[in-house]
Structures are given as structure tokens and as C-alpha cells.
Amino acid sequence: MSGNVSTTPTAQTDPGSSRRQAFIQLGVGSICVACAGASVFGYEFLAPNVLYEPSPITNAGKPDRYPQGTVTQDLQAGIYIVHGPEGLYALSAVCTHLGCLTAWKPELGIVACPCHGSKFRRDGTKIEGPAPNPLPWLKAWISDEGDLLVDRSAPLEQKQFVRT
């Protein structure tokens, strides 16, 4: 009778101890799985799946609205339509520094950002910082209806002119 019962149970001899260990591991493991699941669920919940934002493709109207040698700013769309010697092109008006809306200064012939003073030429190249990059050229094309369309989500790697 007394031979089976150990008065000082250790992890090796006491069967209850290893069972307790197993349950603790199971419990801690379950909590870890629940936390990981909650993190994934939380992230998925916080990231909206449907956005009610304006379409990145904007209609700039008929191309003949933009005479030769002009820079026209579309404040709502945040773009410039420039008609240079080689044709039309669309330029993002969003400063590459911290996302402020730049403005065309006709008296100086440059694009300037009101927030932190970046300046750009009419082809988007940088005159002075703090902007790290030039204003990107945006994909522009003439639709079947003859309207000039600009995709603000599609910056161009190379300069492309829209010929009218």
C-alpha cells in the first residue's frame, strides 16, 4: 500500500505532474492559437475590402480644350494637363514629398508646393527639394468618344505624348 505512494512526488514519478504539464501546454498553446487568429481577423477586419473612393481614371474632356503651350491644373483630379511642342501629357499634381497638392505658377512658369516649398518644371523634373522625386507622368490616352482620359494610378516609366 505505502510502496506505491511517494511522499515527495517528482516530475518523473508522479503521473499527475506530467498530466498537469500536458494540460498547461495545451492551454498555453490554445491561447497562442487564439491570439494569432484574433490578430489575423483583426487585420482583415481593419483593412476595408470595398473602397468608396473616386476612380483613378479621370476624364479631362476634349483635348482641344488645352491650347499649345499651356499648363492646365485640374484641382479635383489633382493633375496637370500640359500641351508642349511634342503633344499633350498628364502630370500628377501631388507632391512627391508628403502628398500636398502643388500649384502651377503662371507668372514664374513653374510648379510649386505650398507645404514645404518644393519646385518643379513643367515636365515634372525637380528644381529644388525637399521632394525626393520628380512629379510622375501619368498614363493618358484618347477614348473612343474623343475625350482625354488620365489614369492617376499608372505613373509612366518613359515620357509618352498624346498626339491629337
Partner: peptide, 13 residues
């Protein structure tokens, strides 16, 4: 930024 704004621009979300 996307999670904080709930979108790509400062908007209703």
C-alpha cells in the same frame, strides 16, 4: 497608413 486611414486618401473612413 492604409489601416489608419481606412483607404488610400483622407476620406470618410
Amino acid at each position: 497608413r492604409f489601416l489608419l486611414l481606412g483607404g488610400h486618401t483622407v476620406n470618410a473612413n
